[in-house]
Design a protein around this nucleic acid. Structure first.
Lengths: 107, 107
DNA sequence: TATAAATGAAACCATTTGGTTTCAAATTTA
DNA sequence: TAAATTTGAAACCAAATGGTTTCATTTATA
C-alpha cells in the first residue's frame, strides 16, 4: 500500500517561483546539484527538495554520474498547463464581446 | 505600511484544483456566490476564500447586485502562464534532439 | 590511504494553506 | 415588520510548504 506519496501535479510544481527558475536554468543545459545550488541564495537541502518535487512530477530527469547527479529538465508535462490555458485563450486574443456585455450591463 | 497582503500571483492561484474548477465554471457565465458553492462539496466560506484569492489576482470580476455578488471570470491574466509555458513548447512539439542526446549519452 | 567533494537524510521550525463552525450584517420578500 | 436569503468575518485547526542545521555516506583525488 503506497503511503505518504504526495500526489504532485504540474500545476502545483510550477506554482513556486524558485522551481520555475530551476526549470528555466535546466531547460537547455544539464547541471549537477551543487551547480544548481550556486544559482540560488538558499541552502543546498532547500534546492534539493525543489528538485525532488520537480523530478517526482516528471519535469526533471536525473542521471547519476559517480557521486554527481546530472540534472536536466524534460518539460513535456508542461503541455498539461499549456492545454489548460489554451481553453481560455480567447480571453486575451479576442475582443471579448461576452465579457464586455457583462461588464457593461449595469449602465 | 502595507502588511499581511499576500502577494498573489497567477501561478499560485491556479495551483489549486478547486480554483481551476471555479475558473472553468465562471468562464462563460456569471453566478452568485451561493450558486458557485452549489457546485462544490465544501462549505461556503471555503469557496468564498478561493474566490477571494482568484479575485485578488485578477482572474475573477465581482459586481455587487444588492445583497448578491455576481461573479465571473476574466482570464486575461492567464496569458502570463500561457507565455511562460510557450517558451518550452518545443519540448512537446519537436523531436527533442538535444534532450535525446542527453538521454543517450551513457550508451 | 587520508582528505575533499557531492549528495542524502533526519530533525526541526515558522508560516501558509485550505478547510471548519459560529455569529453578525445587510438586503429581499412574504 | 418579521422572516428568509445572501454574504462577510472571526476564530480556530490540521496539514502542507519552504526553509534551516546537523550528521552520515559515497565517490573522487592528492
Amino acid at each position: 500500500m503506497i503511503m505518504n506519496v504526495p500526489r504532485r501535479d504540474v500545476f502545483q510544481a510550477i506554482a513556486d517561483p524558485t522551481r520555475r527558475e530551476i526549470i528555466n536554468l535546466l531547460a537547455y543545459q544539464s547541471l549537477n546539484l551543487n551547480a544548481v545550488v550556486d544559482n540560488f541564495e538558499m541552502s543546498r537541502p532547500a534546492v534539493a527538495k525543489h528538485i525532488r518535487i520537480l523530478t517526482e512530477c516528471g519535469l526533471l530527469i536525473i542521471k547519476q554520474k559517480g557521486r554527481e547527479k546530472h540534472i536536466r529538465a524534460d518539460l513535456k508535462k508542461l503541455k498539461q498547463v499549456s492545454d489548460w490555458t489554451a481553453k481560455y485563450q480567447q480571453f486575451w486574443s479576442d475582443k471579448l464581446d461576452a465579457l464586455g456585455d457583462f461588464l457593461d450591463q449595469d449602465k
